[in-house]
């Protein structure tokens, strides 16, 4: 196991360098003048542009630029925006909000998705099964931004149950509705995955054995059936936590949440390359680490899996 983890961590290095370079390339190769509109009505003075180009290594070849960026990054320095704000500070202000949002979404996914999956998986065909199949199909088919605007319009503007936009401090309560929106598509997948997994295992020989042993029904289901059916579901939820943070960009845009989604949104509009790169690099790291954790979790959940 230890050697496996070491190998996986080593594999992360080329993946990390490759993806971050790609991001850097894409962000800094964006067309348009990054200094347009930075100095009010007039174009920026030559001297200012020269200082900036010097400061951001913009006259170096791209590889050198990237190398310098990477070196700083490894020392924990995300760089500065054009106006001199530390990107590290921006990110550390925005990240907790996004983590909160993603956790709420994950909770919705796990709770509603798993319960719907268990109910339909155990009972088999019937009204409940059809209801879940149809509603999950809807959730999967409708893009998040549609669900988001729908929730915002209906519950926020018309019924007035929730605030249409989230305030600056983004409390847990305020994030419930956006969290639900963010969760919607994955929730549908979790419900279906749980349902399939349970329906498959329900007929498994080891479940029959548990019944033949005279174990009470709640143990047959709760211990023998669910423990096995949980394996794919738990690993899906783990991988999804990484994906949710990236997916938060749209939801945060709709509800005007000051998380990293909103930060990226604004930074792209203002061509703040350093910020965009920083945030996306961080998302990549989170994603890679979550994937590794999920693979390890898989081995914990299923003893047949051995990594060595």
């Amino acid at each position: 196991m230890g050697r496996y983890v070491a190998r996986r961590l080593l594999q992360l290095i080329p993946v990390f360098i490759g993806t971050t370079f790609l991001i850097y390339l894409l962000v800094w190769a964006l067309p348009g003048d990054p200094f347009a509109g930075k100095c009010g009505e007039r174009p920026c003075p030559e001297s200012f542009v020269a200082v900036m180009r010097e400061k951001f290594n913009m006259d170096d070849p791209l590889f050198i630029q990237y190398g310098k960026y990477l070196l700083n990054l490894l020392q924990g320095d995300f760089g500065e925006t054009f106006s001199g704000t530390s990107v590290g500070t921006l990110i550390s202000n925005a990240y907790p909000v996004t983590i909160r949002l993603a956790l709420i979404a994950l909770l919705f996914e796990a709770l509603i998705g798993v319960i719907a999956g268990i109910l339909t998986g155990l009972r088999g065909r019937g009204f409940m099964d059809n209801l879940v199949l149809v509603s999950t199909l809807f959730l999967i088919a409708i893009p998040t931004f549609v669900t988001g605007y729908l929730v915002q319009t209906v519950f926020g503007l018309q019924l007035g149950w929730i605030a249409p936009t989230v305030s600056g401090n983004a409390s847990w309560g305020e994030l419930l509705a956006p969290g639900f929106v963010l969760a919607s598509v994955s929730m549908a997948y979790v419900a279906r995955l749980t349902r399939t997994s349970i329906a498959e295992n329900k007929r498994a020989d080891f479940v029959r054995t548990a019944v033949a042993k005279g174990q009470p029904q709640h143990r047959v289901v709760g211990v023998h059936l669910l423990r096995n059916s949980a394996i794919p579901v738990v690993t899906f939820l783990g991988t999804d936590l990484g994906a949710l943070m990236g997916g938060a960009i749209v939801t945060e845009g709709i509800f005007n949440i000051n998380g990293i989604g909103g930060l990226v949104f604004r930074s792209i509009a203002r061509q703040e390359g350093t910020t965009v790169t920083g945030v996306v690099v961080l998302l990549v790291i989170v994603y890679l680490v979550m994937n590794l954790l999920v693979d390890l979790l898989y081995a914990v959940l299923d003893p047949r899996i051995r990594y060595d």
């Binding site: 498994a204 020989d205 080891f206 029959r208 054995t209 548990a210 023998h224 423990r227 096995n228 394996i231 959940l301 299923d302 003893p303 047949r304």
Partner: peptide, 8 residues
């Protein structure tokens, strides 16, 4: 093999 529960 299939009659025993693989995860216990």
């Amino acid at each position: 093999l299939s009659a025993l529960n693989p995860v216990f």
